[in-house]
């Protein structure tokens, strides 16, 4: 046991570096993906048929294709059309796409949950459509969507481990590299797993708490 602890101690800095990159990729993907998801959720209801179909395609491909394929497409595929991305940029691009696609559905559901009376009240007050979105619909819709969005953020941190396949030195890659050099895969993968759990378990509990609170106030 103490043998495992000292092994973990030796490699902890490298593993934590990996965790840092995992968190950065996840954070960047959420920061780009969620606003894009909001935009998609609004544009899917646009009057222009072209815009609607375009958004639908972006959403359906982002949700329908495995994240693993999106990652490899961004990293190995885009250079063929002259866009060479670093593994970090490729990971952010692919995971942002995925985030935008999934969160657009979550946010759309949130917007639809805003009671009709809210729209009628802002209509009756004479708020413009843009103001109605900005001050009434979007803030309330996002509030409803918040637990699901947080739940999705947890899944995104987990999905960032797939960037292993495009040589991004994130948590799983670091664990794997240490495994190949020391041949002690088991303890180092366990450490990586524990670190994921350390973040995801509290976050999941928070989602549950959030949902119960929202249900009480509804």
């Amino acid at each position: 046991m103490s043998d495992i602890l000292s092994f973990w101690g030796t490699y902890l800095p490298q593993i934590l570096d990996g965790l840092g990159i995992s968190l950065k990729v996840t954070g960047a993907s959420l920061a780009i993906g969620i606003p894009a998801g909001l935009a998609l959720a609004l544009m899917v209801q646009a009057k222009s048929r072209f815009l609607r179909w375009f958004c639908l395609a972006v959403v359906e491909i982002g949700r329908g294709a495995p994240a693993l394929i999106l990652l490899q497409f961004a990293y190995f595929g885009l250079p063929n059309v002259g866009v060479s991305l670093t593994s970090f940029a490729a990971a952010v691009a692919a995971l942002s796409w995925s985030t935008a696609a999934y969160t657009s559905e979550i946010i759309r559901a949130g917007l639809q949950a805003v009671p009709r009376g809210q729209i009628e009240a802002s209509d009756a007050l004479g708020l413009s459509f843009a103001d109605q979105l900005r001050f009434v619909l979007v803030p309330q819709g996002l509030r409803v969507a918040a637990p699901a969005l947080l739940g999705f953020a947890v899944l995104m941190l987990q999905a960032s481990s797939l960037a292993f396949t495009i040589a991004l030195p994130e948590l799983l890659s670091q664990a794997y590299i240490i495994g190949t050099t020391t041949f002690r895969y088991m303890p180092i993968l366990c450490l990586a797993g524990l670190l994921y759990a350390c973040i995801c378990i509290p976050a999941t509990l928070l989602v549950g708490w959030f949902e119960r609170r929202l249900a009480r106030h509804a």
Binding site: P115, G117, Q118, E120, A121, S122, D123, A124, L125, G126, S128, F135, V136, P139, Q140, R143
Partner: peptide
């Protein structure tokens, strides 16, 4: 917009904005 500015409305279910 002009019409709605001239007419103020009060609903059965109040419809206040809960987040403000």
């Amino acid at each position: 917009m002009g019409l709605r500015r001239k007419a103020g409305m009060v609903f059965q279910s109040f419809n206040l904005f809960p987040h403000l």
